[in-house]
Simulated assay, not measured.
Amino acid sequence: MMIRLGLVGIGKIARDQHLPAIRADDRYELVATASRHAQLDGVPGHVDIAAMIAGDHRLGAVSICTPPVGRHAIAAAAIDAGLHVMLEKPPAATTTEISALADYARARGVTLFATWHSREAAGVGPARDWLSDKRIRAAHIRWKEDIRRWHPGQEWILDAGGFGVFDPGINALSIMAAILPAPLLLDAAQIDIPEGRGSPIAATMAMRSGDAEVTADLDFLQTGPQSWDIEVETDAGTLRLSMGGSVLELPGGEPVTREDREYPRLYTRFAELIAAGKSDVDIRPLQLVADAFLVAERRTVAPFQF
């Protein structure tokens, strides 16, 4: 059955990832958009979710790609209208918001899909399978990228509620929470917040999974080569994921690179959930970020300008 889809938010991530995935999947028909700042040629556009719902497009589902602050109200309006909802990561501004949305979707009998696109990287599933029967000794995240390259001019990302360096960093946490056999728990953190900003430009996290030490080093100011790397030390050697999970290296083997289809896989999963009448809402990565803000030592660092 064709899913008549509305897209809310037409920013960089929607244009770079969501639109190509939607257009390539014959299970979807993009019938409307909602954005205060942009429209798509040939697709009816509206200024907000209320106008889109009222537009008589016979919508069946919406995909929400707005910044996390304010997303709860958008998703709640869609659920209230009986629409299935897919959420770009992070799924909401707070853990309370996403839990409330999950409850509301359940009560209304609609699908809610809180996506974690990095989990769909080519090496993540095989990494999880390989680690399932191993003893984990330690694990390390190095997630360092250039904010000016990947988020040009996106001032909101350093506002309060914008997540700062945790916006990309939560991708690594989503992978780690998925591949480690034991729960991931936070012990301590440090966050560096530029003077006059509300969210961190860098962070470190000290965690544990079972009896294994897990560390994370997150940076939004890395120029040159970018680092999206995870290492997991086990009793059978060290597993390495690089390039955000698209390259997998197992002990004794060569790095294996496979084609990434992160967003096409997300839309496949959304269609499957709708067909099965189910939801998929894993809030563990968001909980880890919330925990970091709770316990972190805060440092004020030099002002940042795009």
Rank of each mutant, 00 (worst) to 15 (best):
M2L: 13
K12N: 08
Q17Y: 15
R23P: 00
D26K: 13
R27G: 03
A38P: 02
Q39V: 15
P44A: 10
H46T: 08
H46C: 06
I49S: 04
A50K: 10
I53D: 01
H57R: 13
R58V: 03
A61Y: 03
C65M: 14
P67D: 12
R71I: 02
I74C: 11
A77K: 05
D80P: 07
A81R: 08
A81L: 08
G82T: 09
L83Q: 06
V85F: 09
M86D: 04
L87V: 01
P91R: 06
A92K: 05
T96K: 11
S99E: 11
S99D: 13
A105E: 07
T111M: 07
W116K: 00
W116F: 10
S118K: 05
D133P: 03
D133I: 01
K134V: 11
R135N: 14
R137N: 04
R137W: 04
I141R: 07
R142W: 03
W143D: 02
D146Q: 09
I147M: 06
R148A: 04
R148L: 05
L158Q: 05
G161F: 11
G162K: 04
V165S: 05
N171K: 05
A172Q: 05
S174V: 02
I175P: 10
M176Q: 06
I179T: 03
I179M: 10
P181Q: 13
L185E: 14
L186E: 04
A188G: 11
A188C: 06
A189R: 01
Q190G: 10
Q190S: 14
I191H: 08
D192F: 12
P194G: 10
E195I: 05
S199D: 10
S199G: 09
M205W: 13
R208Q: 08
D211F: 01
D211H: 08
E213Q: 14
T215G: 03
L218T: 11
D219R: 14
P225H: 07
V232M: 11
V232W: 12
G237C: 06
E249Q: 15
L250H: 00
D260K: 04
Y263F: 15
Y263C: 01
R265S: 15
R269E: 09
R269Q: 13
A271P: 08
E272L: 02
L273E: 10
S279Y: 03
I283W: 00
L288S: 01
L288C: 02
V289T: 07
D291H: 12
A296R: 12
R298P: 00
P303C: 09
Q305M: 01
F306K: 00
